[in-house]
Simulated scan of single mutants.
Amino acid sequence: MEGTPDEFGAYRLLAGGVVPRPIAWVSSRSGDGVDNLAPYSFFNVVAYDPPVVMFAPVGTGENLKDTPQNVVDTGSFVVNVVTEDLVEAMNATSATLPKGESEFEHVGIDAVEATEVDAARVADAKVAFECELYDTIEVGGSTMVLGEVVYAHVADEVLTGEKLDVTKLDAVGRLSGGFYAKTRDRFELERPE
């Protein structure tokens, strides 16, 4: 079958064809001091100098969800990397809660204060990136949130020497629907000269 993205259903086509997608488990804080935690699988690295990551939730302008609105209001957020031991808790934080209710408290996730930004982070996350708002860009019906990483937390158990070792980080990726992928089944290829 061939056709335009609309003929396939653009969301299902992209969410099912661009896989696995990393998950940004974004923690933020409202102007009223309420901690928010939500997963986003439209997420990736944008640049390394300066170090910038992005996530792109649905909604623009006055229709922003809590997380992007918090980021716009406070200029801060944390991307917590989802690993196998945290995937059930991450999924639980995708539930729609009343405004002003914290996913940390609702799900029972331990939070610790970030070091450089005004937000909490997931205490058990093996990797967390503290970010300051770099920019937001409206793209169709979504808002791409760009954050400059200003501080990183990396658990000793996923380090080899002083470097993050991807073979020790059991990150989880998003597929489509209710499907996820583990990153344990790895292989290595040498890049050609």
Rank of each mutant, 00 (worst) to 15 (best):
M1R: 14
E2Q: 06
E2P: 01
D6F: 02
E7I: 08
F8M: 11
G9Q: 13
A10L: 03
A10C: 09
R12N: 01
L13C: 05
L14E: 07
L14A: 03
A15Q: 15
A15D: 14
A15V: 13
P20G: 00
R21S: 05
R21V: 03
I23K: 00
I23C: 00
I23G: 00
W25T: 04
S28P: 10
R29F: 15
R29P: 15
R29K: 05
G31D: 03
G31L: 03
D35L: 09
N36Q: 03
L37D: 01
L37V: 00
A38T: 11
P39M: 03
Y40N: 03
F42R: 03
F42N: 01
N44A: 12
V46R: 10
D49W: 07
P50Y: 09
P51M: 08
V52H: 00
V52I: 11
F55H: 14
A56K: 05
G61K: 12
G61Y: 12
L64H: 06
L64D: 13
D66L: 12
T67M: 01
P68F: 07
Q69N: 08
Q69D: 09
N70Y: 10
D73E: 08
T74Q: 15
F77Y: 08
N80I: 10
N80L: 10
D85Y: 05
L86C: 11
L86H: 10
L86P: 06
V87N: 08
V87D: 12
A89R: 13
A89Q: 04
M90G: 02
M90S: 04
T93E: 04
S94K: 09
T96E: 14
T96G: 02
T96C: 12
P98A: 03
P98Y: 08
K99F: 08
G100H: 13
G100A: 06
S102E: 11
E103K: 11
E105M: 04
V107L: 07
G108A: 12
I109Q: 04
D110Q: 07
A111Y: 01
E113Y: 07
E113P: 08
A114T: 05
A114Q: 02
T115P: 03
T115S: 06
T115F: 14
E116Y: 13
V117F: 06
V117T: 07
V117S: 08
D118F: 07
V122N: 09
K126F: 01
A128G: 13
F129V: 07
E130V: 05
E132G: 11
E132K: 10
L133V: 09
Y134D: 09
D135Y: 13
T136Y: 10
I137E: 05
V139G: 09
V139L: 05
G140Y: 14
G141V: 14
S142P: 06
E148G: 12
V150F: 14
V150K: 12
A152C: 02
A152D: 04
A152E: 09
H153Q: 11
V158H: 01
T160E: 15
E162N: 12
L164H: 04
D165G: 03
K168T: 01
K168W: 14
L169C: 10
D170V: 14
A171W: 15
V172Q: 00
L175T: 00
Y180F: 11
Y180V: 01
A181C: 00
D185T: 01
R186D: 02
F187I: 08
L189M: 06
